[in-house]
Computed example of a mutant assay.
Amino acid sequence: MKLSKKIRQFLIEPLQAQFQQQIQQVQDQLSQAKADNAATKLVMGAALAKLVKQATSIQEAEFKVFSQFGDDGIIQYLINHVKPRVDTFVEFGVEDYEEANTRFLMMNNNWKGLIIDGSPTFINYIKTRTFFWRYSLKAVASFITAENINQLLIDNGIVGPIGLLSIDIDGNDYWVWKAITAVEADIVVIEYNSLFGSERALTAPYRPDFRREKAHYSYLYFGASLPALCDLAIEKGYAFVGCNQAGNNAYFVKKEKLNGLPALSVEEGYVYSRFRENRNQEGVMCFLDGAERSALIEGLPVINTRTNREEYL
């Protein structure tokens, strides 16, 4: 026992300490690489943000810094036109905030805001990032439902007018936006499901525990159609101003804040998505295109938001 203890003390423990030190060095290097990459992106994004002022449409304004697609540019374009009352944002469904609609807005324009994600792991990671202390950002771990969203906003001091609301929770997006009364955003960006079509006002049925990956193996059964969101926007006093070119985010502006921006019909602004994130029954991405994607969810139940009756895709 004594010999074993000495071997551990003089051989194994130093090796373990050395290994842990090496791991920490690699982690530090990765963090620095991310920081350097973010700094480069910010410089390039700042230059693009100045050029966006000359754009004549939201599609022309698109560019990506931290957003998944071209939404960073669209948001810069819209805040230049809308002149939001308050430089505060709220974004739901940010995951680790590496790809998000509001991160460039925060870092380039010094906006403050609240981000919410259902994963404590993601939120804890965000709180370790340099930008978390450099900017006025609250990060909250909570699974969002129509029942808890207003209290979440109130508990975190976000009430009344805000500049921008971004909703991307892969499921109950329509129902959560419908439920929100605690804040009134000048600009709303919300994910829509282009596979639900451009004619019927449809949404996935509401379930407080809705999870996209469990709702259907394809990952394509979630959210709402653009007509459903446009109807809801009208009820809330918004005008539809367009979608991103990727066909997954729709943009709405308070009618009194349009400042010359054209309000569009669904027919004028609808964009059909072409990204291929669908999966087969084994959970493996299968990269189906076009109508093949729609076939995966054909026959699934949806709610017609105009009649409040169940229909089928």
Score class of each variant (00 low, 15 high):
residue 159 V to R: 15
residue 283 G to T: 06
residue 44 M to F: 13
residue 216 H to D: 12
residue 105 L to F: 03
residue 245 Q to G: 13
residue 34 K to Y: 09
residue 174 Y to L: 02
residue 215 A to C: 09
residue 223 G to F: 00
residue 301 P to W: 07
residue 49 A to I: 04
residue 72 D to T: 05
residue 124 N to T: 14
residue 293 R to V: 07
residue 96 D to R: 11
residue 139 A to C: 02
residue 128 T to H: 06
residue 155 D to P: 01
residue 146 A to L: 08
residue 164 L to Q: 06
residue 203 T to I: 12
residue 94 V to A: 08
residue 250 A to N: 11
residue 96 D to T: 05
residue 157 G to F: 02
residue 278 N to P: 02
residue 146 A to S: 05
residue 197 G to W: 14
residue 251 Y to E: 08
residue 19 F to W: 12
residue 129 R to I: 00
residue 280 N to I: 12
residue 233 A to W: 03
residue 246 A to I: 07
residue 201 A to C: 09
residue 184 E to S: 12
residue 146 A to E: 14
residue 83 K to P: 02
residue 245 Q to H: 08
residue 308 N to I: 06
residue 215 A to G: 05
residue 100 A to N: 06
residue 98 E to K: 14
residue 302 V to Q: 00
residue 72 D to P: 02
residue 20 Q to N: 14
residue 123 I to P: 00
residue 41 K to R: 12
residue 233 A to C: 08
residue 103 R to Y: 07
residue 67 S to K: 13
residue 197 G to D: 07
residue 134 R to P: 03
residue 241 V to W: 11
residue 179 A to F: 14
residue 95 E to Y: 09
residue 28 D to R: 11
residue 290 G to I: 03
residue 94 V to Q: 05
residue 14 P to H: 06
residue 136 S to E: 14
residue 116 I to A: 03
residue 13 E to D: 03
residue 274 R to F: 04
residue 172 N to E: 06
residue 48 L to R: 09
residue 4 S to A: 15
residue 228 A to F: 15
residue 50 K to Q: 12
residue 269 G to W: 12
residue 256 E to F: 13
residue 208 P to C: 07
residue 90 V to I: 13
residue 219 Y to D: 15
residue 211 R to D: 12
residue 160 G to T: 15
residue 34 K to L: 07
residue 236 K to D: 04
residue 170 D to Q: 05
residue 63 F to W: 07
residue 235 E to G: 10
residue 222 F to L: 15
residue 50 K to T: 15
residue 84 P to E: 15
residue 266 V to L: 09
residue 41 K to Y: 02
residue 26 V to Q: 02
residue 263 A to H: 07
residue 13 E to P: 00
residue 193 N to A: 08
